[in-house]
């Protein structure tokens, strides 16, 4: 059977982990991290990290199709 492109990027186990987090924790497909660096209660740096966990080629059409 021909593997679909999404399977090559994200295998079944990773998809199941994503769904596990999404279902059980309801944090969605986006895992967000926040880092706050501060000195003496003054916030200096605020870093927001967001990573989309999904098979990008399945969601977003490749450039040639546009």
């Amino acid at each position: 059977m021909k593997r679909k492109p999404k399977d090559e990027i994200l295998d079944e186990r990773e998809v199941s982990l994503l769904d596990l987090v999404d279902n059980v924790l309801n944090r969605g497909v986006v895992l967000t991290g926040e880092i706050l660096l501060g000195v003496a209660d003054v916030d200096l740096v605020y870093v927001r990290l967001a990573a989309i966990l999904c098979a990008a080629d399945k969601l977003f059409p490749p450039p040639s199709e546009k």
Binding site: D19, N23, N26, C54, L59
Partner: peptide, 17 residues
């Protein structure tokens, strides 16, 4: 359809938060 489908799961998304 251009979408990722998964399931079947227990209906987590339909439980009140």
């Amino acid at each position: 359809f251009r979408a990722i489908v998964s399931g079947p799961f227990p209906p987590y998304a339909f439980a009140p938060e």
